[in-house]
Write a protein that binds this DNA or RNA. Structure first.
Lengths: 172, 172
DNA sequence: CGCATTAACTTAACATGTTAAGTATCTCCG
DNA sequence: CGGAGATACTTAACATGTTAAGTTAATGCG
């Protein structure tokens, strides 16, 4: 463990604290960021071994639960922005993990689905992933985990109503 | 091509549900991601108006609370990886929002501090930022907010002990 | 000393986040 | 029917996340 922080013999007379704000490390965004990072740190090595990033894994998981989906719907499911999804789909398609075909009824839409290879890859990752999740649940406690998720959902709902800028998302 | 499911809109739809996993939308990483995004969506427009990104703001906030810090310490405070911080500091320095000078005792280290201009910028952003935070607190509830942060901290601690980075987690 | 090792950053390379602009297609109204 | 506007993506441009490699300065040890 790195202990250091012996603090060099710098001057004293602290001229900081010039702008009054809450303690930085206790801000909600930081807490959420740190918690999420702590969780993802558990999964990333395993995903990496299988050549997948976190986002690619999200997409495959989303696709594995359905027949096929339009890009926009997939973006909503995997919580990715359109441009990110567009790039990732291009790569996943090149790796033959997904398949795309334009809808006949509407040439603008493309239906995305997971390929046989994609399913195979998922099957090889899922056990480890589930085991890690189980370990997290065991460490933190199943009950507390459920409570936490409930609170996170509430937070989301309580802020969703006044969502940042354009809140004209129809169809839900 | 043998089709496994009837789909009126398009021809052959690959089968789904081939790999059993938890409901995707209920995974902890997704809950944390969505909650954080809901929160950050409130702040981003204001930061943007002041020409700051979320990470730049984190750095300025961290610097405003102290005299000066080494890059590594600052990275820990602002929860940024070294390379990200390195780039951002370069930009913030070019904009004269921070100042750097190499430590006399150890030429490898550079001490970073916020500049007068940086303080001025912070002072212009802080009120709005605090107001947004207050509104979030009001909507979600101060008590629940404290509870949530407590749980997030617990989660972090319960996972931190087996922190996957250099902690011999290879065979998990 | 001399040199391997370590430490503190920085650069590099690739992937994603975020916003804006572009493209092709579809809808609808006049 | 025809063009304005809406839709569904895709591209582009810039900033950050993430890992690996490079650079320079300090340390340890024979």
């Amino acid at each position: 463990m790195t202990k250091k922080t012996a603090d060099p013999a710098n001057g004293s007379a602290p001229a900081a604290r010039q702008v009054p704000m809450r303690d930085f490390s206790r801000s909600l965004p930081m807490s959420l960021l740190r918690a999420r990072e702590a969780v993802m740190r558990q999964f990333r090595p395993s995903l990496r071994e299988h050549g997948l990033t976190e986002q690619q894994w999200r997409i495959l998981r989303a696709l594995a639960s359905i027949e096929a989906a339009e890009v926009t719907e997939l973006a909503r499911m995997a919580f990715l922005l359109g441009p990110s999804l567009s790039r990732i789909l291009r790569d996943l398609e090149a790796r033959n993990l997904i398949e795309r075909k334009t809808a006949k009824a509407d040439q603008r839409r493309s239906m995305v689905s997971i390929s046989k290879e994609g399913v195979k890859l998922m099957a090889s990752v899922a056990p480890t992933s589930e085991a890690i999740y189980a370990e997290i649940t065991r460490r933190f406690g199943a009950r507390k985990l459920a409570e936490l998720q409930e609170m996170l959902g509430e937070l989301e709902r309580s802020l969703g109503e006044l969502g940042g800028a354009d809140e004209t998302i129809a169809g839900e």
